[in-house]
Write a protein that binds this DNA or RNA. Sequence first.
DNA 1: CAGTTGAGTGCAAGCGCTTGCAAACTGGGG
DNA 2: CCCCAGTTTGCAAGCGCTTGCACTCAACTG
Lengths: 350, 350
Amino acid sequence: MTGIDDVAKLAGVSTATVSRALSGRGHVAPRTREKVAAAASQLGYVVNADASSLATGRTRNVGVVVPFLNRWFYTAVIEGAQRRLMQYGYDLTLYNLSGHDDERSSVFEHFLLRKRVDAVLAVSLELTEQEVDSLHALGRPLVGVGGPIPGVPTLSIDDVAVTKLATEHLLSLGHRVIGHIGGDVERELSFHLPTNRRHGYELALREAGIEPDPALYYPAVFTMESGYQAAKQLLGEPRIRPTALVAASDEMAIGAMLAARDMGLSVPGDLSVIGIDNHELAPFFGLSTVDQHPGLQGERAVELLMEALQPSGGADSVPAVDQPLPFDLIVRDSTARVPLQPAAVESAHG
Amino acid sequence: MTGIDDVAKLAGVSTATVSRALSGRGHVAPRTREKVAAAASQLGYVVNADASSLATGRTRNVGVVVPFLNRWFYTAVIEGAQRRLMQYGYDLTLYNLSGHDDERSSVFEHFLLRKRVDAVLAVSLELTEQEVDSLHALGRPLVGVGGPIPGVPTLSIDDVAVTKLATEHLLSLGHRVIGHIGGDVERELSFHLPTNRRHGYELALREAGIEPDPALYYPAVFTMESGYQAAKQLLGEPRIRPTALVAASDEMAIGAMLAARDMGLSVPGDLSVIGIDNHELAPFFGLSTVDQHPGLQGERAVELLMEALQPSGGADSVPAVDQPLPFDLIVRDSTARVPLQPAAVESAHG
DNA sequence: CAGTTGAGTGCAAGCGCTTGCAAACTGGGG
DNA sequence: CCCCAGTTTGCAAGCGCTTGCACTCAACTG
């Protein structure tokens, strides 16, 4: 295996010079640098990451922890993070907590502690104080994405503003009876997100002079199936049939669209539906939504970590998150002006 | 930061003994072992992975390379691989090739070469000879999942058998005019998979004494949208309307179901549809399918790699794949006996 | 009872790189 | 021509762990 000595020998310099020439640290004469670069590429030499880590104390690797993998949002965040990390020359080591409980503790009490990562990115995770502490004790910067972690800088869109925007879009189309399918506070991973999104929905209504009707809200988990069931409930209620629905996620929204269709309602003819996410399936279903650019969130998180890793910034001093994350209303075919008179619901299917 | 010396001091032994006690290599008296374990846990000591790697030459880390992340199959494989790796005490470093072309080359020519991984798992990737060689030159075992790589042990279900099974299910329900929506050989990542799946479909028909009709095949990429479009084409053909469809993936199959509905056909009343995968959305859509257990494929791949990493097995001698991968027919609500007489197609929607 | 064996432990030499320090060299000013 | 400052390079001491070798000691063997 070719090592730094081989390169040094071939280039006719010391290993110290090779190291400096290749890493760009310290002074090296331009001609020497070229010689070294030539020798390295001739030998196909790539620095041994472990040896380098041991010597410098920096691994050029960050750990990304996710609750599980099979959710569009997480993978989108990871893709974004990875993209940026690669540009910085960093590796991404993935920890997936979807297994048993002891998988989680083993990640935090063993895997993350063996100093293989310089920093940790937690996606949609509520960390315990203990977990945060153990990472900080190691001097490893930590940032979260998509869910507030107490005492940790967290990147997250303004969940209130996002649903408010979605709801306002419906209001602007003349809708006045607007239902909401939101995260179930009891059953979701993150407590704040569903609450905030519901809050944004209510806020928009109140600003339009409409008092939110609790009967128009139905809880669900963030899946298509759950959105389907929730919509069935909301639309089956004969007393007050909404003319529009805002769902806390696109997957729920798509479920709701399918439910409406199964009930003989046309979207957007009889019912407008809007989601949050801009999920990869949203274009296919023609779903209006609010894009929250998860890939961008991943990229931003990495940039934050990189700043924290600069020697200038203190060990666990991740710079505060200042600039707000962007989100954009995307209007497709699932939202339209309120119908002049509501359609009747056929007998529920299935 | 507590190191091995601290533990040694506290336990009153040498660092060599600590190392042996904690790693389980070499002889250590039971009482000594306990003392060391106690000291280590008291100090919260976790061995420094980099130092250990440098000394042993083994990183306890494997690289997983995927073409991109946002596909159910890949994440399912990764989850399985991760689960098993964690049990072995290994980390998983993820490389995602979804970016530019130079991202791919940078992964293979730089990231994977810096000796941070002991082995590489390639998911649904066709590696070039050069890429395979450079990994072998490093003595890193390599296995593939979900797509044959020349000269590399690859785990993959029997794609012919899988579609054959799906087609036979339809045949057993009395269907005789069965369409196929398959991967587009021109546009897919892997050349073999779509061809094999189509082959299985044709094989089943021939064995039932039916000559496959090319007009009943329509190419598509592995997405819902593409399945939708393909189904529209196949079902819109008035000359020969199939009573059943086998799609090369669940996502395509779901797209096909939606297309059928939009055309006024009921599933399975007028049209049976079956897919391949057992995608997470399959239960929701009531889709009959063939489960290919991707998580299990990831686990198996890891087991193979671990065997190859045993000092007994030669460096790049991954054991041959012997046992076939399991797959199972799952019958839900999208397949039924052939209708006595075909329904008429309403005017196509959209 | 001396000799052999093997378990249990410690010493110290690495693993492949980085970097503080100092030496060697360069060029410009006095 | 000498001196100084700045640049370029090499020496060698680590980084935190593992492991071959050597040593001690107790248990056996003949």
